[in-house]
Design a protein around this nucleic acid. Sequence first.
DNA 1: TATAAGTATGAGAACGCTTTCAGCAACCCG
DNA 2: CGGGTTGCTGAAAGCGTTCTCATACTTATA
Lengths: 354, 354
Amino acid sequence: MTDPTDSPVPPPGAEITLRDVARLAGVSVSTASRVINRTCGVSPAYAAAVQAVLERFSYIPNNAARALVRQKTRTVGLVVPTLSNPLFAPSIAAIEATLRDAGYGLLVACSQRAPERELEQVRMMIERGVDGMILTGSHHLPATLGLLASRGVVLATQDDPAACAGALSVAMQDAAAMATVIDALVMRGHRTIGILTGPVENTLPIAERLRGAIQRLEHHGLPHGAGHIMETADYQAASSRRAARTLLDRVRGLTAIACTGDILAIGTIMECRRRGLRIPQDISIVGCGDTVMSQFVDPPLATIHLPFGTMGEQAARRLLCVMAGRPLPPTRPLPFRLIQRHTLNRMPRVPPGA
Amino acid sequence: MTDPTDSPVPPPGAEITLRDVARLAGVSVSTASRVINRTCGVSPAYAAAVQAVLERFSYIPNNAARALVRQKTRTVGLVVPTLSNPLFAPSIAAIEATLRDAGYGLLVACSQRAPERELEQVRMMIERGVDGMILTGSHHLPATLGLLASRGVVLATQDDPAACAGALSVAMQDAAAMATVIDALVMRGHRTIGILTGPVENTLPIAERLRGAIQRLEHHGLPHGAGHIMETADYQAASSRRAARTLLDRVRGLTAIACTGDILAIGTIMECRRRGLRIPQDISIVGCGDTVMSQFVDPPLATIHLPFGTMGEQAARRLLCVMAGRPLPPTRPLPFRLIQRHTLNRMPRVPPGA
DNA sequence: TATAAGTATGAGAACGCTTTCAGCAACCCG
DNA sequence: CGGGTTGCTGAAAGCGTTCTCATACTTATA
């Protein structure tokens, strides 16, 4: 009690540790720990004393020490292909919110669509002891998956239509979404429909969207050959404009263009405008994704709303379930719906090309 | 050497620890540690042996244990006001890339513009032992700053024109940017210029932009009273359209509208279109920010490019400097420039309102 | 009143790593 | 050839927690 190191106030620079708390409250470290973790069996008097010290010094537990003994960090890792493109922004936001509500921290990295980089980042995250990981997309190195499995890290994937992780995989109904676009056009009388798609290779969701569109055109007995389909080189506005031009030149009597992405649709709108085609009187244009941009284009773009926020939330929620040992709720397909803005109309009586 | 626990291969479920590595390589834990950390003074033979085991079992160090003794986690925290809005996406991407290159992990959270929430998240990050933090914006609770300071966490702020953290604060030249917009319009002959701004309260950058615009109008001896300025209720497209309508109704002979944000400019374009005003022949519209949207609007929006990516990168870079004890490079103002797209033109001879 | 059962408490080991310190060669110089 | 220097190595002490176990103290039961 007369120990000179036994000062009532901890030195200002150093952080207050559990031992300090215990000493200040006049209990043992074990008891202090029990109060913090709400483990039963602490007398009210001691509990109150510890609680008071906790608040007075705003004690923050050291997660590293905790992690060391518990082998859990209450942190999960997320790797997305890109951060600068706003596509995944709602998904990231939802994941962050869901995890935060559950007391988890979120470590974020960006793979720039390079699986090797993704592996490196997964290593980094395992090093930091993540309890779970969310991977985005469908292109992962076997080594990545193996590493995760060997370290006992729970893995969830999002936006991977191939569903490599089984029950913990949540993806859009990309094919069905584009089938809905085709149906909406056919229902409005369109018979000559062009398809504009982004680069299909290495992006399964886009490939799925294309597949869904083609299949549905076939189902309706409409032309769906290579002549009616145009693939852009990338997602720049200029490329999609160029592709739209080719498509409009190539297919006579085109009254509608279905695009597998909103940016492509925006490029198409621009090109149609340039040609003096009125939208939607002369030609209908439908996108897919409902990204922020689509409501700001002129005219506002009809598109399929894909619930990226819900996707992220579900991925996080299911991950939390598994980490907590709770049973997984049944998988339900992510809903999507057609947003009727101003670029979708009945087929004109006289096709502009005729 | 005949100890039964001394198996050459670690049990499959458990992770391989430094002790395992040492045992497998036939050296002490200290030596193995020295090899991993490239501390000098290990004989080549031993170094090679350890290296081999490291690779063979793909050893990943446990950062929690490391953090415990080093008091450093090589992780930094980032709090942004919003993730779903793509505004900060380039900044986050740049921060992530910069930190990753330096071997740092990034913990992300979103305050939803609520300072109390920000405090809570800073607590969470301190708990996880971040070495540094990047806070966004200018509204922080004193408790937040105090907490960070008392725990010795290095703090950098971004997008805070009030520069509360001194040398570690990197912000845009918002006022100067809008002054440039006014200059560009004046130089093209415009004399009756309207200003459309977002809600000024609680968003210092927007307030700064407005201030810059007003000051510059005054400098040129042009009208800059409340009648020429319109503040929207929020950042929805509909609100900015409504505000643009009021402004156009109120000010006769308006030939240009300067907006403190791109979304506002987009709403203005829509409203002008609806009235049959030709852009840019009848009216010029200039935005600020150069967000992804602005290049996809029709006509493509003239705006000020604000380097959000650079801002994030600089914040991260400066933070790294301080954490590494390196001297800070001199602060240089973030560059900005006018992007001349299609909505900026000379003043029409006959103003459309006349 | 003595014993069993139960409850609150604290001592101390462990978690996986870094780092100080001491030990032990081998070497150089006088 | 001895004492000092140098360079590599391993033992061991923490880092801040959690958690098991043993201990002391209550209370209920015989």
